[in-house]
Design a protein around this nucleic acid. Structure first.
Lengths: 341, 341
DNA sequence: CTGAAAGCGCTTACAG
DNA sequence: CTGAAAGCGCTTACAG
């Protein structure tokens, strides 16, 4: 299969008996060019289906209008809603997007940052790989390129960060459980505190404190991999305790769904005996029965916001590094798993 | 924030007192260059953290090593697994990927095809928007660029196509229902037959025919939007019939999950009274209780395969347009929703 | 083994 | 209002 030769400025200029410069200017609607010339040029361009080589353009002007995006895992539902927002906003602003998956692997992440820079992206959007320990690579990039972090961030990196109000969302979720009369609320969280898990745990603690409820380490459970299976496993553990909890706050929907599965299996009534709240409003949260009360995270908004700030930085470069943190509000969605009968 | 000036060949050549050409060749390990020169050059390049401007490179060599990908909806789980495969395979082959969402909007799709071409992608991977009626735009692109279609394809477009064995997968699913003793199998499919829905319907019909079972239009149900809600609605309809079916084949998991929800609600025993089979092995299929029997579609493999063929066409351009169809095998996963007790 | 030069397609000061 | 020319960073025939 052969590439059909592309129409270039040169070709247009020859056909029109004008200089390349004039054609270029006419196409870009430069004020210097006469109406009549512009019309002639634009007409032929349309007729020949001319489309500028964006590559040459970008190369010339040192701006590619490409944004690089790095996420740990593209097929997480929440991530994909963020990507949706990123794609939308980028598109309306005339940018294209290159997406890469770090697979939560720091080495890979570093590689990707490098390739993207080489590639000449105008800016980078990144959600950090779990256990990103060496912040150095990211800091290096920051010196050369605008970079905005979202969702998985690190406060050690001085840049614009778009995150959700994890702490407050968790606080609200736990307070909701307290409001419906629950007295002994367990939490299922991550072992090594990721940024998100940490904040959600803090929200849990604050809610208990503000309502003068005791904090009991025995019902603060952690797991390396916060999955459905582990949610189920830890719930089984809770069920085996002498003093069972009457509610479970799982810091992800998957863990929450696992919890409900365990409770269903042992015919524990949800929410009467044990209520469950999850986090992220994933698709599964309405599939499980009873439907899971959860925190809705507006992924698309996060994506759009991150892009807006990035483009702002690209188009209005400042001397100083910007380190703004934008917190996007979440929303507790109450469903049957915590509905007070 | 200021872009730190980038190290270029020129700078290296000045520092080394060599010509730009020599430096370029040394870096590309050209056989003409002496070992010692190569060493000097490569050492300095490393020291100064030189990284080639891929943009200039691509511009020069008329190949960008970027693949354009267009999908209807990035956040469908199946789509995201395909994207994963695409990203993986592209990466290992040294290509980058630009992803766009057509949102099932044909106009948007056409625009994207155009931008990507302008952009100088080396090839395009596309899953067509539903109701893509004017094949013309795609045909235009085909004249200029290698293009491979996957998942949502059209046999009117002569190009390599990577699809799953919809017909056979559906056949197997329905045959499974027959094997467990079901006599009256309903189907929930799409109204306007998309490529996939059409094939799955054909598989359903063939299974019934081969087993000499009657085909009853009354239990062949269609819906515009094959969603969970509509799966539930149509199942309610089935339940209201005098002659209820004893099994439901839903051509998507969502519809199948909706079916189970409806059956659960009316305390119809699944699978004893009515068995259910879905299609795609989505995350929800193991969340619903009873877990949904479904067809596993190896998304990642589809993505990888599509990329392989695309790169093959890019790197070995043929005079003639290739029109191979690659069918990827699927797998029926039997779960509780159809398990013969 | 190394270098000078052309050129990829475009934009943009500079000149007229 | 229009054009000639330089240059973005790189590769690669051509010459020596």
């Amino acid at each position: 299969m052969q590439k059909k030769p592309t129409v270039t400025l040169k070709e247009l200029s020859q056909k029109l008996e004008l200089s390349i410069s004039t054609v270029s200017r006419a196409l870009n609607d430069h004020p210097d060019i006469s109406r009549s010339t512009k019309d002639r040029v634009q007409k032929l361009a349309k007729a020949l289906d001319y489309s500028p080589n964006l590559f040459a353009k970008g190369f010339r002007s040192h701006s590619t209008h490409i944004l690089g995006v790095i996420v740990p895992n593209i097929s997480h539902y929440f991530t994909s809603t963020i990507l949706k927002g990123i794609l939308d906003e980028a598109e309306t602003s005339g940018y294209r997007v290159i997406i890469s998956e770090s697979k939560n692997n720091e080495t890979k992440q570093t590689e990707m940052l490098k390739t993207m820079t080489q590639f000449g992206v105008d800016g980078i959007l990144i959600a950090l790989a779990r256990k990103t320990s060496s912040i150095n690579d990211v800091l290096q990039i920051l010196k050369r390129l605008p970079l905005v972090m979202f969702d998985k961030v690190s406060d050690k990196i001085p840049c614009t960060q778009v995150i959700i109000d994890d702490e407050e969302a968790a606080f609200n979720a736990v307070e909701h459980l307290i409001n419906i009369g629950k007295k002994r609320i367990a939490i299922i969280k991550e072992t090594e505190n990721s940024f998100n898990s940490e904040k959600r745990f803090l929200g849990y603690l604050r809610a208990l404190k503000e309502h003068n409820m005791p904090i009991d380490d025995k019902i603060i459970l952690s797991t390396e991999d916060i999955s459905l299976t582990n949610g189920r496993r830890l719930t089984n553990l809770l069920l085996s305790m002498k003093k069972r909890p009457d509610a479970i706050f799982a810091i992800t929907d998957n863990a929450g769904i696992g919890a409900i599965k365990a409770l269903n299996k042992f015919k524990v009534k949800v929410p009467e005996e044990i209520a469950v709240v999850g986090f992220s409003n994933s698709l599964g949260s309405t599939i499980i029965q009873p439907a899971l009360t959860t925190v809705d995270q507006p992924g698309s908004k996060i994506g759009r916001t991150a892009v807006k700030y990035l483009i702002e930085e690209i188009e209005n470069p400042k001397k100083d590094i910007v380190t703004k943190t934008i917190t996007v509000k979440t929303n507790l969605i109450v469903r049957d798993s915590s509905f007070k009968a």
